[in-house]
Design a protein around this nucleic acid. Structure first.
Lengths: 317, 317
DNA sequence: ACCATCCTATAAGGCGGCGTTATCCACCGG
DNA sequence: CCGGTGGATAACGCCGCCTTATAGGATGGT
């Protein structure tokens, strides 16, 4: 019945003392004010303005409206400003989830980038394996997930799970074979997986284990999984002790080293694609988009020579 | 940019959890909500609602709007309610001015009537002689004035002073001659004013004195004004002591008595008309209209020769 | 796996709110 | 008496906002 525009007009009249001045103050023409007041009066069923020839005076009811204008309009402005702050990245909060090995370098770098460009955008971060983070995304408990998919598979299995989701590839991560320095294949340039058919294996997270089994099956054997752990530091320790061999994503090797372990390219090569996933709607939320962009930038700075294979002293321990 | 309607919609969505439910809650159809949200989104330049197939979820910006809805809308409701209270006579304040002798009975009775029917309407009351009260009315310092005009003259002299003013006759007040009981004319039914040409006179307020002079001049003499006082009790005392004669409105005589004074009709009869005066705008303010009506009712109950007519309550815009 | 159901999006149409310009009228001061 | 200022009114156009009708997509039960 009464809206903000009406209050604004009444306040202007109270302040300026005439319809014409109020119109000028609001950027309207005088008849606009005249009609607005009349509409307000017939809506409220009361006289709001006393017309006294030369100027106008508010009646009691008119003063009531003028008096209420300030709180209402300033609250409205505050709301608008808050939204504008979010839209303008002067505010905003992103709930980010990433799988553990992405947390090491890719994510911190992205967080730093966002903080640098938009100091007032805050990012909440939770570690989670891809299936879990995608579920959180669907449940609305997360705005942006960093996930990965091994070559040939998709981030989310099942085609229909994908729609409504925006999937941005961040980088290609080569899967390498970690063996102890003393292992017979340690000197090889590349290793066919079949050569490790007889070795005990160390598997990581369920999906990684699945990937291992799949690769091995392609190479014609079923891996003998001796140990399972999701902790790559532990994996390296186990490998170093000669207790088994393992597949380790290249990304991990940049932060987890062990001098007694070498990481070799395998044959045929296998990669996983690290992606950022969000929903269609959320991808248009400025803070989310900014974070996504930062992740891409972080990934671009991190990829060495994505698909090519490289001689590698530095990170193969 | 953002208005109350938008906030109401966002709040409803937040509360109800879906567009359809929000529409139902607000009495709209679903597409109305859908479009409203879209408009808000393009105005703010941000995504406000995350569409997740089964239901919708607000984004951070959306929650900001929903959160601001309560204060704004309740302030708006409060304003509306306050105005409605004034319109519905559950509130309101009338600044009333009346000349002293009206204050005696006519006004108190009217005040009582208003208080009885509309306990929450408050009436501020100030005594003032007609010219003064009309000036206050024009100056906006008064909403309703009780004034009087002697027969043949007008409440406000000058024709043009009258427009914009609403003048309601309340009652006709006969002017009588007060003489001491011992005065030679005290037994007469009516007294030609000329018979008092030789007596000393006691005059009241300037206008009353003017009226006296005018009447006397009509009767062919110039009154010898021995005393002047606006206090009718004093007038009665002076008359009782035989210090002079006076013209006294009938209305006064109902409250001011003196056993040694008789009040006689004069010849030719003279009356003053007691009127309520307000502005055109103010006459449509409910509290003012109610007071005006009460004054008329009070006058009707008081008039001996009910030559007055009730004013029509005019509180439609 | 299909179908019924529920939700949202979109199109098209109508009405009214709200602004504009043009014009008139009342009041006021020189 | 006249010019300036301020308000009211009329006529008009736009667009906001609601409606109905309909399509598309996700869900959940059998």
């Amino acid at each position: 019945m009464i809206d903000a525009a009406g209050l604004r007009v009444m306040r202007a009249i109270a302040q300026e003392g005439s319809f014409t001045a109020a119109a000028a103050a609001l950027g309207y023409t005088q008849p606009a004010i005249s009609q607005m007041v009349r509409r307000l009066e017939q809506r409220t069923g009361t006289v709001l303005v006393e017309r006294t020839g030369r100027s106008v005076r508010l009646t009691e009811a008119g003063r009531v409206l003028a008096r209420h204008a300030d709180p209402v309009l300033s609250a409205l402005d505050a709301a608008e400003e808050e939204v504008a702050a979010i839209a303008g990245l002067r505010s905003g909060r992103v709930r980010l989830m990433a799988f553990p090995s992405a947390s090491a370098t890719l994510v911190p770098r992205a967080l730093a980038l966002v903080k640098e460009r938009f100091p007032d955008v805050t990012i909440g971060f939770t570690e989670a394996e891809p299936p879990e983070s995608l579920a959180a995304l669907r449940a609305g408990e997360c705005d942006l997930a960093v996930a990965f998919a091994y070559e040939g598979t998709d981030v989310a299995r099942g085609e229909q799970d994908l729609d409504g989701l925006v999937i941005t590839p961040l980088l290609e991560d080569e899967v390498r074979l970690a063996v102890p320095r003393s292992h017979p294949v340690a000197d090889r340039e590349t290793v066919p997986l079949a050569d490790l058919a007889g070795d005990p294996w160390i598997a990581g997270c369920p999906r990684c284990r699945g990937h291992l089994v799949q690769l091995a099956s392609g190479a014609g054997f079923r891996p003998d999984v001796a140990y399972e752990t999701e902790d790559y530091v532990a994996v390296m320790g186990l490998v170093a002790e000669g207790l088994g061999v393992a597949l380790i994503p290249d990304l991990i090797l940049r932060t987890v080293h062990h001098e007694d372990v070498v990481a070799l390219p395998i044959e045929p090569a296998s990669r996983r694609t690290i992606t950022a996933v969000t929903t269609d709607d959320l991808s248009r939320v400025p803070a989310v988009a900014a974070t996504l962009e930062a992740l891409a930038a972080s990934a671009a700075g991190q990829s060495r020579a994505p698909t090519t294979r490289m001689p590698e002293p530095a990170w193969s321990i």
